[in-house]
């Protein structure tokens, strides 16, 4: 991994990083990846394709929820006429 890789990752993750932190992260990543790389040495012949971690789906249905529109609107960093306000996109 190099500094450009860190910059690309930060771009993908939408994180603004200082130059100093990019260098620090690069160093940390080398340490962490060095540790987790040990999984390479594990030989796994076969794993059941039916992984236990899977999505659980349900039908959409209209039910009463106890949270109010107002309490959600209160959280908006910026709003106008009761609507969430964002920067111009187009």
């Amino acid at each position: 991994m190099n500094l450009t890789d860190v910059e690309n990752l930060a771009e993908l993750a939408k994180l603004e990083l200082s130059q100093e932190e990019k260098e620090q992260i690069l160093k940390d990543m080398e340490g962490i990846l060095g540790y987790v790389k040990q999984i390479e040495e594990v030989k796994i012949a076969e794993v059941s394709p039916d992984y236990s971690v899977h999505n659980v789906w349900r039908e959409d249905e209209v039910i009463q929820k106890d949270f109010s529109q107002d309490s959600i609107k209160e959280q908006f960093p910026d709003s106008q006429d009761g609507f969430l306000k964002v920067k111009k996109i187009l």
């Binding site: 991994m1 890789d5 860190v6 990752l9 930060a10 993908l12 993750a13 994180l15 990083l17 932190e21 992260i25 940390d28 990543m29 962490i32 990846l33």
Partner: peptide
């Protein structure tokens, strides 16, 4: 986000 959160987000993205 703090430093450790940023670090783990980037690691996960990687």
């Amino acid at each position: 986000f703090g430093k450790e959160a940023r670090r783990r987000i980037l690691l996960g993205t990687y």
